[in-house]
Nucleic acid binder design. Structure first.
Lengths: 142, 142
DNA sequence: GCAATATAATTAGTTTGACTAACTAAATAA
DNA sequence: TTATTTAGTTAGTCAAACTAATTATATTGC
């Protein structure tokens, strides 16, 4: 049957992922902070303090780009920088309490939107989606 | 059980969608055409010819932004514009054979990547993912 | 031990894609 | 037929990406 053909499934999954994120993105706009900055902030929040170069690598941008993003985030009081004690060329970037609060708030809004929509589904459908999410993580890693 | 709690499912789904698209994005870079242009081209390819304003709306950008994107795509020979016969203010934008070929090639690359990865899954897992994709579309619409 | 090289971050300058505002041309309404 | 609305373009601005060059510190080789 066509439903289990890899190419069909791949296409459907790809479309679905695009739609899902597009639907959810509106919630981010309300935080008043741009997507790239929000993303960097997220990495720092959940991955802990980081050097500039490591953060740039994690976000797949150049160090120059990240330098500007971090400097903006710093101006807004969302992250703090300080010289690395062991390597004085390096900086240690970490989220401030304010940054952490903003992240949490944004995440809540985003999830609330999905949450609200998922409420209309049956328990079984939600279970299926949960299983699928786990599989999708495996797809992305392999 | 926690697995069917909407908030948990929402979080898992969100993460999974982000990862999936990130993993696939690398295939697009190889086409040598930017994401916004590729996306517009995709709409024209699968949705057929369109006016500028309709295309702008579909891509959720202003007419001014789309005007520039289309003019770039035209320079590259990927789309063709001509005055609408019935409304001479309007333009009819359509994909050229070259544009169609590029789209198809890009799409193949992207899906090949997912396809290759999905091959490692069982038939049952792929069926589950196919069902989940359908549900995700519903989540995004509702 | 010091000159050469490498690395971390920043700064300067460019490009792309987004926006708004202002404009031209064509269609529709009063 | 004059006024208004609509379709698209152009000009100017901004954010975020890039590369290249610069500064400061670390590391290596002689």
């Amino acid at each position: 049957m066509a439903r289990t053909d890899s190419l069909e499934v791949a296409a459907a999954l790809h479309r679905a992922a695009i739609r899902l994120l597009r639907a959810v993105r509106v919630a981010d706009d309300e935080t008043g902070i741009s997507a790239p900055k929000l993303s960097a902030l997220s990495v720092l929040t959940f991955g802990g303090p980081s050097s500039l170069s490591a953060l740039a690598k994690a976000e797949q941008v150049t160090a120059a780009t990240m330098s500007k993003l971090v400097s903006d985030l710093e101006s807004e009081g969302l992250v703090a920088k300080r010289v690395d004690r062991e390597d004085k060329r390096g900086v240690r970037i970490e989220v401030t309490a304010k940054g952490r609060a903003l992240m949490e708030e944004g995440r809540k809004r985003r999830l609330a939107l999905l949450h609200k929509r998922l409420g209309k589904f049956t328990r079984e459908e939600r279970a299926l989606l949960a299983d699928a999410a786990a599989l999708m993580m495996r797809v992305s890693e392999g």
